[in-house]
Design a protein around this nucleic acid. Structure first.
Lengths: 266, 266
DNA sequence: TCGGCGCCATGATGCAGATCAACAGAGGTC
DNA sequence: GACCTCTGTTGATCTGCATCATGGCGCCGA
């Protein structure tokens, strides 16, 4: 592997000293140690950023990550237009990302669950392209991007992983574009439920029973539909025995039928 | 600057030797020298990948870029699912990217003009997530991604630029998502025309008079509308004196009115 | 305990854009 | 020049979702 040949380690002090006290994001000023949870012990480490790192590299990544007190429901993590400094990893809870249209309306561009990374749209303009808000009490890790950038130049595995993260965001946006452009209301709702179900499974949670962290308004906004349409879609699917819906509690009773409703061929 | 301190140059032979004969993409097997146009003399260099590089770095980038004979209209550049090896820069002509839905229909995800980069959605899965097809005779530069990755670990400017490119793709996809989710047919069409106009201006071409390289079907597909609706939108705008439309030839007669039609506040 | 508010569900109606259909013009082939 | 196919335009009709309106339920503070 050419990779390992090129690999260069920068020894402790020098590098991490530089990296540690770089940029700070507003809510992350508070003393780090209070909320210290190492990536190594975090049960999300296998699906989050640390994914591809050995323990030496992990320690360096560890040093730049900032943790702070959890965000309360509806609290803002970052605001579009604000200077871009960090990308964020969700540790617990759930977030929504949205951007404000020229006429002042909101467009929800994504929901983010534990282990997922958001805020990468800010890189290109050095300013956040979208805002992020907590859907429920959420713990967030902030990762100063210029530190991450420098680290990733030294760790090929990390660089590769970052490229992949950004690329994945692109393909997911493309899926949403396709969904909005080609699918009916019911198909969109079914697809979202399947997506949430799959992401729950990834975190060892139930794929068939969960609580939606977002409101019907947010779902409608995300899927390009009105609240009423979302509500009716849920009702229809409940009536046809695909789901059991109790407010935000969802139970998928027939996974195959839901896939069919999402227009995904078996 | 911490950047320059970390900068490491790998001398000619060793590195470039490694980098040159790595991955090959199907249409790029033919002898390179036939279509040799250096980035340095390419008039797109200021808006394309070389953007942030000095001449030393540029030479190294130069060495990994593969050029081949131009693609004919409708010719395929890459196919979704095919192993990902390169990202592509459009040198001349125009491309469309699209992905095939589970039920076999196409979703156009973007149009790409000279100086623009496509294919970055393939990074995350090591396989192209979308296909790309020439809308007219087009010259393409293929940039093997693993070589680019290695180079970018050595050139912070290049690494930064790549992150920005990926990030820009994300924000552009988000804009399309918003467009599809919130805007009327006329607004979508007007927005696309403004986008093409702006991108023409960037290449020193006329912002008010141009030829659309794509069909009405492609436009409709991209904007989540039918051909008929596109056609009617054009007719309406022509009738109201915003545009002159002659088949694929477009003249923007009233830029402000077009922005208004796109729902962009003055 | 009550009233107010946010969130959700459901019915009635309207409309933008899809669908269906017919035709016109451009460009290619024989 | 005759013919065909492909692409785009325009009209008539249909429909899925938006819009408008109403009411129920859970939650919170007074």
């Amino acid at each position: 592997m050419l990779y390992t040949l090129q690999r260069i380690y920068v020894q402790g002090e020098t590098m991490s000293g530089h990296l540690q006290n770089l940029s700070e994001t507003a809510p992350f000023r508070s003393c780090n140690h209070e909320f210290k949870v190492s990536c190594e012990t975090c049960r999300l480490s296998r699906i989050c950023l640390p994914l591809a790192l050995n323990s030496t590299d992990l320690e360096q990544l560890e040093n730049i990550i900032q943790r702070s007190k959890p965000l309360q429901k509806n609290e803002l993590l970052c605001h579009e237009g604000a200077p871009f400094q960090s990308i964020y990893a969700v540790r617990s809870g759930a977030m929504k990302a949205y951007r404000t249209t020229s006429d002042g309306r909101e467009q929800v561009t994504g929901f983010y669950f534990p282990g997922e990374i958001l805020g990468m749209d800010g890189i290109s303009e050095s300013a956040h392209a979208s805002s992020a808000r907590a859907l429920e009490t959420s713990a967030i890790c902030a990762i100063p991007f210029d530190s991450l950038e420098k680290l990733s130049a030294l760790m090929p595995g990390l660089q590769r992983h970052l490229f992949q993260l950004l690329s994945r965001e692109i393909t997911e946006d493309q899926l949403l574009i396709t969904l909005l452009s080609k699918n009916s209301a019911d198909e969109r709702v079914a697809t979202l439920l399947l997506s949430i179900s799959r992401r729950n499974a990834r975190r060892q949670l139930s794929a068939s029973q969960f609580r939606l962290p977002m409101s019907r308004v947010d779902i409608g906004n995300y899927l390009g539909l009105t609240v009423e349409t979302i509500s009716r879609a849920f009702s229809r699917m409940q009536k046809s025995g695909i789901l059991r819906v109790d407010n935000k509690e969802i139970e998928i009773l027939n996974h195959e039928a839901l896939q069919l409703a999402a227009n995904i061929p078996a």
